[in-house]
Amino acid sequence: MRIGIDLGGTKIEIIALDDAGHTLARRRVATPQGDYPATLQAVAGLVEAVETELGRRGTVGVGTPGAVSKASGLMKNANSTCLNGRPLPDDLRQLLGREVRTANDANCLALSEAVDGAAAGAEVVFAVILGTGVGGGIVVRGQLLSGINSIAGEWGHNPLPLPAGADLPLPACYCGRAGCIETYLSGPGLAADHLRSSGVALAPEAIVAAALAGDAAGEASLQRYEARLARALAGVINILDPDVIVLGGGLSNLARLYERVPARWGAQVFSDTVATRLLAAAHGDSSGVRGAAWLWPVAGRSREG
């Protein structure tokens, strides 16, 4: 039995999978905001509850915001800032009494979709989370790439390409930089852009609903979003040249992205044609937690943890 945990900013979700990927159990709780010890206890409580329910013990993989520094063993780059500087893998190992594998949440999305999701069978997969933050993960021939600095795929903290006009001034990012892709393409980034352009404060889902209802300001905000996403992904295609780009996170539910973004990205891709496919995550909101479970590979499958 493989247990996966998605340690999100608003919720902590757990899933238990058998070797075939069938769900045996699933639960979620609210994330204790800004409280590291309570977060650890919430994770431990979920593992205990699932193992008690199923009557057996499992391997544990955890998808986290940010990553574990290879230099210090401490968390870094997490937008859930109470995790930064903490020895999360060691603390979980101690609490749970077993080895725990961790990976960035976008890496877990990439792994899940490459194993048995929208990108199953693809040689090179880039997966994107468009949610509270913006992350990315890379799987090549079934192998999850983390990189020598544990930041492979972290495109969200690259600058937005070719900022001009409505992209300016560059928005400040929590990472200390300005103009990061995340500040434009996250849910809060979309909301902030709409407020700057229209003077109206709306949540991302309300902006989408307004656009669908014919609201000109909402439609303009979505068109700016699509153009920025296309420019940002064109840079990924030029460097990685993936077979498939998979979108996850709340904004990935916007169906128009899958036609409109590929129609735009060719202008910045250094090729006469672009065969890369843009697809929605087959497992939807479950991709991250499923990928965390797959950090422990099934015997006979080659995969990094």
Rank of each mutant, 00 (worst) to 15 (best):
I3H: 00
K11G: 12
K11Q: 15
E13M: 11
D19N: 14
H22I: 03
Y36T: 12
A42R: 01
A49H: 10
R57Y: 05
G61P: 09
V68A: 03
G73S: 11
A78T: 08
T81W: 04
L88W: 02
D90W: 03
D90N: 10
L92P: 02
R93A: 14
G97H: 06
N107R: 11
N107A: 10
A119I: 12
A122T: 04
G135F: 04
L145M: 15
A152T: 13
W155M: 15
L160Y: 02
P163T: 10
D167T: 06
L168Y: 06
P171A: 12
G176W: 15
I181E: 06
E182R: 07
T183K: 06
P188R: 01
D193G: 14
L202S: 06
E205I: 00
A209F: 05
A209W: 09
A211V: 09
L212Y: 08
G214S: 10
A217T: 11
G218V: 05
I237M: 09
N238H: 11
G250V: 08
A255S: 13
A263W: 02
S271E: 14
D272I: 08
V274H: 06
T276W: 12
T276D: 14
L279R: 12
H283Q: 06
S286V: 00
A293C: 07
W294V: 00
G300W: 12
R301H: 12
